[in-house]
Computed example of a mutant assay.
Amino acid sequence: MSTDISLTTLLLLCLAAAGAGWVDAVVGGGGLVQLPALLVGLPGAPPVQVLGTNKAVAICGTAAAAVAYARRAPLDLRTAFRVGLAALGGSLAGASLAAGIDSAVLRPLIMAVLLAVLAFLLLRPSFGVTARAGEVPTRRRVAVAVLVAGLGIGFYDGLIGPGTGTFLVLALAGILHMDLVSASGTAKIVNVCTNVGALVTFTLQGAVLWQVAVPMALCNLTGGAVGARMALKRGSGFVRGVLVVVVVALVCKLALDQWGW
């Protein structure tokens, strides 16, 4: 495919990448902004090139956010990498089965889960606002996090994908009793682990449009760094508000994919 696109289109894609990086750094779900923008901006590109380019862009903002969180928030890096390695394995397994799964069957189930999550967030306003003081996760809780947030959500990421970062934040906060800021930071590290494997695969397939990906990646990186700093500065209450908005957006996006207009 020719990557000769207009300067206006490239600038709009870069703006979308910056916004996606910000959203993803705060609570996950940046793909809701970036992937549709790439589909519109690159209408002649094969889907695999759109996905590969999206992954090359997204990993930059995620990595920048992970570094910002790791420097300024009290993250349990050992646990984060354990969950991340499990998620890498889960995403590879999910990707290997993706071609044989009808996503139209999965979307209603995912929407039901998201609606339950939304109801939970609205009915439990204290969820994730503060961590349990002095609590150290037990080995059992860490093992559950590895299985659910690592293998389970990693598998979902490889299989279908939308909202992976949001699910990670919710799972980590619920299982390990993290506040939402720490959960967001840990989720970024896990996302970096899963994205590395996918990006290597896409790169080996020649499915990344680097002429588009590089300028978008710089903007995504900037958005990710700014989003992480805002989340760290404003705290879990701010993250929770963004989380509610992103969950609603995910439900609407999946409903649109399932039933159209």
Rank of each mutant, 00 (worst) to 15 (best):
Ala249Phe: 12
Val192Glu: 12
Thr8Lys: 14
Phe238Asn: 12
Val113Thr: 12
Val144Glu: 14
Leu10Arg: 08
Val23Asn: 11
Ala213Ile: 02
Ala207Glu: 08
Ala73Pro: 03
Ser236Arg: 03
Thr194Ala: 15
Gly260Trp: 13
Leu218Pro: 04
Gly223Pro: 07
Val113Gln: 05
Leu254Arg: 03
Ala183Leu: 11
Leu204Phe: 12
Gly223Ile: 12
Met178Lys: 05
Ala86Arg: 08
Ser6Ala: 14
Val129Cys: 01
Arg139Asp: 10
Gln34Glu: 08
Ala68Leu: 04
Gly223Lys: 09
Val246Ile: 15
Leu92Arg: 10
Asp257Thr: 13
Ala58Val: 13
Ile110Gly: 00
Thr53Arg: 03
Ala58Asp: 09
Cys252Val: 14
Pro36Asp: 12
Ala18Met: 15
Ser103Gln: 14
Lys233Arg: 14
Asn195Gln: 13
Val181Trp: 09
Gly29Asp: 04
Val142Ile: 15
Gly227Gln: 11
Ser91Val: 13
Asp4Trp: 01
Ala104Gly: 07
Gln205Val: 09
Ala213Glu: 01
Gly197Arg: 08
Ala187Asp: 04
Val129Ile: 13
Thr194His: 13
Ala187Asn: 02
Val142Ser: 04
Phe120Val: 06
Leu123Thr: 05
Val50Trp: 03
Val26Leu: 03
Cys219Gly: 01
Gln258Glu: 14
Val247Tyr: 06
Met178Cys: 06
Ala133Tyr: 07
Leu85Met: 14
Thr53Lys: 05
Lys253Phe: 08
Phe155Leu: 15
Ser184Tyr: 05
Gly90Cys: 07
Ala119Leu: 14
Phe120Cys: 05
Gly158Asp: 09
Trp22Asn: 03
Lys55Tyr: 07
Leu199Pro: 06
Leu97Pro: 01
Ala183Gln: 09
Val244Trp: 07
Ser6Phe: 11
Thr166Ile: 07
